[in-house]
Design a protein around this nucleic acid. Structure first.
Length: 354
DNA sequence: TTTGATTGCGCATGGTCTCT
DNA sequence: AGAGACCATGCGCAATCAAA
């Protein structure tokens, strides 16, 4: 058997961020050093789809710098055979301690590399079998050939992403890219009634734009925008006529959320307070309470008021940071996954099958 | 057939870095 | 300064499997 061409783990580490761009599922664990070293060991041992060679996480911990330098086929095959054998023997200079297999197996392989189609799992093995069970997905291994022209590499990466990343992941990539690409003087937001407004470009605006153009028509029957603010409390649009029509008195002194929507579909209009979270300000319990006071002061009973916190992406740190403070009885929505909605129900809901 | 090494799993700890 | 995130590692357990 000929072993696949070998790239040092450093070079693999450098390539990974291009292969798993911003917005990928579990990106951090797909591109961290452990991932690079894990992939290196798979390559080293020839564990690539189609070869019927597999490794187990423990082998990654047993690799050493010294061993990694021996790149001829004979040394690689000998190591692959030896490292799969049970042995209590000490391995001087091993990359990781024995228990680090936990991080390698769970965080890196299972929840990141397999999720992202970079690694495949051999079926039919008993749960606790010590046999090797992981190997590189064949096309993914093709991204790791040494001496690739930069253009060739990028072309292959793009092709690989389109073929292997999940639809959801791809949608998220597109959104994140669009956000990064929009760099003009202003960003145009189109309201449900056809009016447009200019907003300062930025991540917060990307989210606001998605809330008004995507979320509102998707989740509301007859959506309308009552007010829209930018970060820094700058009011971009405020529809006093619409507010008056639904008998909403907007208090001048109270701080409104980033976006106030109304759904004119139901017999009693539904008021939707949306907080856009890029840097701060989710709908937590305190915020919900104070917004409810505003609504009630304006003549809207609680059952006709909804709360939404909008994020760019489920994988972002903004969501992670604020998830534990989001108010029960509110919703979370992600611009990158527009069809889905997280319900923080404050009462028991029937559990449905998929 | 027995035995001991190793696995997956769940839970835990301590050090370092990074925000607020 | 303090809190939290992140990373590497530790421990006990039952199941599994290959070598003795």
């Amino acid at each position: 058997m000929t072993c696949p061409a070998l790239l040092s783990w450093n070079e693999i580490h450098a390539r990974l961020p291009h292969i798993f761009p911003e917005g990928s599922d579990n990106r951090e664990h797909s591109i961290w050093e452990i991932a690079a070293k894990t992939i290196f060991v798979m390559l080293y041992a020839g564990a690539v789809e189609g070869s019927d060679h597999w490794i187990r996480p423990d082998q990654v911990t047993r690799m050493t710098d010294e061993q990694a330098r021996q790149t001829d086929d004979a040394a690689r095959q000998a190591w692959a055979a030896a490292s799969i054998k049970p042995s209590k023997a000490d391995v001087p200079g091993r990359w990781y301690a024995v228990n680090t297999r936990e991080s390698i197996r769970d965080d890196t392989i299972r929840y990141a590399l397999i999720q992202n189609s970079a690694v495949i799992e051999r079926p039919g093995l008993a749960t606790t079998s010590p046999a090797g069970r992981y190997a590189l997905q064949a096309d993914f291994a093709g991204l790791l050939e040494p001496d690739l022209e930069e253009a060739t590499f990028h072309a292959r990466v793009t092709a690989w992403q389109e073929k292997h990343l999940t639809a959801g992941a791809l949608a998220r990539l597109a959104i994140v890219r669009a956000g990064a690409a929009s760099g003009g003087d202003y960003e145009l937001v189109t309201f449900p009634n056809g009016e447009t407004r200019r907003m300062t470009p930025g991540a917060s605006t990307d989210i606001s734009k998605a809330v008004i153009e995507v979320f509102a028509p998707k989740f509301l029957q007859k959506p309308g925008v009552i007010s829209l603010s930018e970060s820094g409390n700058k009011v971009v649009a405020r529809d006093d006529d619409l507010a008056k029509a639904i008998k909403l008195k907007i208090p001048a002194d109270k701080s409104l959320p980033d976006i106030v929507l109304v759904d004119l579909g139901p017999s009693h209009p539904l008021l939707i307070f949306v907080e856009v979270v890029h840097t701060d300000g989710p709908v937590n319990q305190a915020r919900k309470t104070s917004l409810l006071e505003i609504a009630e002061g304006a003549g809207f009973p609680p059952q006709h008021v909804a709360f939404v916190t909008a994020f760019l992406d489920r994988g972002g740190s903004q969501f992670r940071k604020t998830a534990n403070s989001l108010a029960w009885g509110s919703y979370a929505w992600f611009a990158s996954e527009p069809d889905n909605l997280i319900v923080f129900s404050d009462k028991p809901l029937p559990i449905e099958g998929s």
